[in-house]
Design a protein around this nucleic acid. Structure first.
Length: 434
RNA sequence: GUCCGGAUAGUGUAGAGGCCUAUCAUGAAGCCCUGUCGAGGCUUCGACCCGGGUUCGACUCCCGGUCCGGGCGCCA
């Protein structure tokens, strides 16, 4: 049985006289003596509950006056259209039921009158999220997810779920979290990459997955976490240009959907969202390197990965979303297809926001011989990849795909300062709780 | 990992050897108040991260630790 009849946001001044039951938290009590205002907060906003001393039951007034902030309440009463009240209405209560009392003092101030450090906020995330501007980020994130799912659905994709517990450090390179799997050692997967590819051999043709990835790197920055949500896509009989096209369309649609459907949340954040124009610019690695090396003391050599300074310089020069293409084959993973006529350059790409990398993808190697060769070249043992390589020997179509970080999409979309602001319960080098 | 900065009531802060019995806001408790909307007024409560050192005296200076923030690194 749902206790409430309406959210605060559902009520309009025209509903004057209607009997309603609201459920939520005691945001504030303003006692003026002869009149007392209780502000009830729920997910959709605030409702003012007005108690006039002379007209209301004495016990009820005393109870409301002594409510502890953030106690959970049921307010039964009548809607009264009232121009003096916020949003043009107030509730004249017949009863206020305390469902659960909140302790005092609170671990942080949910009204936002007094600030709190990010660390304090994350320690008490359940209170932090009671602030509309904090909740707004996650409603927008929900809309981004909805938008991507719709986009994939409209484009003939199958949504899949691949295992997060895996046997081997499949891709090499990045550090994995080891776990105990009965009597064996296992790992938390760093990417659904290999599984997506196997599903191409299976003939699923177009798949996407939205799920967690885990990286045991000891990075300590505003844009890295050890657990992240990846939006992963793989498409058969397609090349890198095809999947870049999908990615930029999906991104523009996500921005468009948020701009259209999350106006209240954007307002709460004070953001006017500009939808990026498609197609995004294509910048080759070689061109980007030229920009990065301008006026730089220690030049980056062709074939080296770009450091943070370079990424920022290029981002500043381009000023909008762009794809970085034609990466040197040596700095891309083994499953990245090299150009047939110029094997030193690959069909890998990154989707960049001026501030940071958002996604990375490629036309994949589908020839098993070449794949084995490239695995060896990367210093890895093909025997460990047998479960994966097997899928390439019995009819693997050419395919391409990408992986996009959800947190970074939200972070850059909303201009947040820290990836931790875009994740409900972030996991980093130090934080494992809550 | 490394460099820089920081740690003061529940929360956010001021104070830079004795002025500290530590500032302000918020909060909590109480009182006054009939239209508040960050209500207002009055009273009360509540704190110097840990360990060592320097000094007559340390919240303040020095050393070490822990934790936090930022930059970089690491990040197929």
């Amino acid at each position: 049985m749902v206790l409430r009849t309406h959210y605060s946001g559902d009520i309009l001044p025209e509903m004057d006289g209607l009997q309603v039951t609201l459920a939520g938290w005691a945001h504030e009590v303003r006692d003026l003596g002869g009149i007392c205002f209780l502000v009830l907060r729920d997910r959709e906003g605030f409702a003012q509950v007005t108690l006039v001393a002379k007209k209301v039951d004495k016990d009820l007034l005393e109870r409301v006056r002594h409510l502890s902030r953030e106690s959970v309440l049921l307010v039964k009463g009548k809607v009264k259209g009232e121009p003096k009240a916020p949003r043009g209405y107030e509730i004249i209560p017949s009863d206020v039921v305390v469902l659960n009392e909140a302790d005092s003092p609170l671990p942080m101030d949910p009204t936002g009158k007094v600030g709190a450090d990010l660390d304090t906020r994350l320690d008490s995330r359940f209170v932090d999220l009671r602030r509309p501007s904090v909740l707004a980020v996650f409603r927008i994130e929900s809309e981004v997810l909805r938008s991507f799912r719709n986009f994939f659905s409209e484009n003939g994709f199958i949504e899949v779920c691949t295992p997060k517990v895996v046997a081997t450090a499949t891709e090499g390179g990045t550090a994995l979290f080891p776990i105990t799997y009965f009597e064996r050692e296992a790992f938390l997967n760093q990417s659904p990459q290999l599984y997506k590819q196997m599903l191409m051999s299976a003939g699923l043709d177009r798949v996407f997955e939205i799920g967690p990835i885990f990286r045991a790197e000891e990075h300590d920055t505003r844009r890295h976490l050890n657990e992240a949500i990846s939006i992963d896509v793989e498409v058969s009989f397609a090349d890198e240009e095809d999947v870049m096209g999908l990615l930029e369309k999906a991104m523009a649609k996500a921005y468009g959907d948020v701009a259209e459907r999350c106006q209240k949340d954007l307002e709460a954040l004070g953001i006017e969202l500009a939808v990026p124009k498609t197609p995004f610019k294509r910048v080759t690695y070689t061109e980007a390197l030229k920009i990065a090396n301008e006026g730089r003391a220690t030049k980056i050599e062709w074939g080296d990965d770009l450091d943070t300074e370079a990424e920022k310089a290029i981002g500043a020069a381009i000023g909008e979303h762009y794809f970085m293409t034609e990466w040197p084959t040596v700095i891309k993973p083994y499953y990245t297809q090299p150009f047939e006529d110029r094997p030193e350059i690959s069909r890998g790409f990154d989707l960049m926001h001026p501030q940071m990398e958002l996604a990375s993808g490629a036309q994949r190697v589908h020839d098993p011989e070449l794949l084995v060769q490239k695995i060896r070249k990367q210093g890895l043992d093909p025997d460990g990849f047998e479960f994966y390589l097997k899928a390439f020997r019995y009819g693997m179509p050419p395919h391409a795909g990408w992986g996009l970080g959800l947190g970074r999409v939200v972070l850059t979309m909303l201009g947040l300062e820290n990836i931790r602001d875009a994740v409900l319960f972030p996991r980093d080098r130090r934080r494992l709780v809550p």
